[in-house]
């Protein structure tokens, strides 16, 4: 198992809100705080812009983990956006868990623009968790993954 884990590089999609967590990721960068290259960030104006279908799409296309980062509760630039995120994602993650996509593959985190170190540690921790879970094959649409076709 451990050998497989070392060679396995999960694909992680991170949705970051423009005001807090994207800036937090920038700060992690300017502070040269290392986290794995698996994390690819998509900028959204607010975490509440993330439609559950984006998360489903990511898993369908073969992502191994999806994380959403927003401003801390009470600090949302749009005042209430992250509360919607919290509720919507609680429901979505329950549903995904039911479908067999483990809880460890999905996460909502609050990272402020001043928390570069926190951004890096959240990403390190999340990548570690997803790596331990191994590749996600649950709702992956294999037609979009020609290399998987033969293996299955």
């Amino acid at each position: 198992m451990s050998v497989e884990h070392e060679s396995f590089k999960p694909t992680i999609v991170a949705f970051c809100c423009n005001w807090c967590s994207y800036a937090g990721a920038d700060l992690a960068g300017s502070g040269r705080m290392q986290y794995p290259a698996n994390v690819k960030i998509i900028k959204v104006p607010c975490s509440c812009r993330v439609n559950p279908t984006f998360v489903l799409r990511a898993f369908q296309r073969g992502a191994d983990g999806v994380i959403m980062c927003g401003c801390h509760p009470g600090d949302c630039h749009y005042s209430t956006g992250n509360y919607y995120t919290r509720r919507r994602m609680t429901m979505l993650f329950d549903f995904l868990d039911f479908l067999g996509i483990e809880r460890g593959r999905t996460r909502v985190e609050w990272v402020s623009a001043a928390e570069g170190a926190r951004f890096a540690s959240v990403m390190n921790d999340f990548v570690k968790n997803v790596t331990e879970l191994g590749p996600n094959r649950k709702i992956t649409d294999l037609r979009t993954k020609p290399e998987h076709k033969e293996g299955e």
Binding site: T11, V13, K40, I42, V44, R49, N51, T53, F54, R57, A58, R61, G62, A63
Partner: peptide, 12 residues
């Protein structure tokens, strides 16, 4: 929606 989906697709 289409733009963000396209980004997701490109990353995955």
């Amino acid at each position: 929606n289409k733009q963000i989906m396209a980004e997701v697709d490109a990353i995955c």
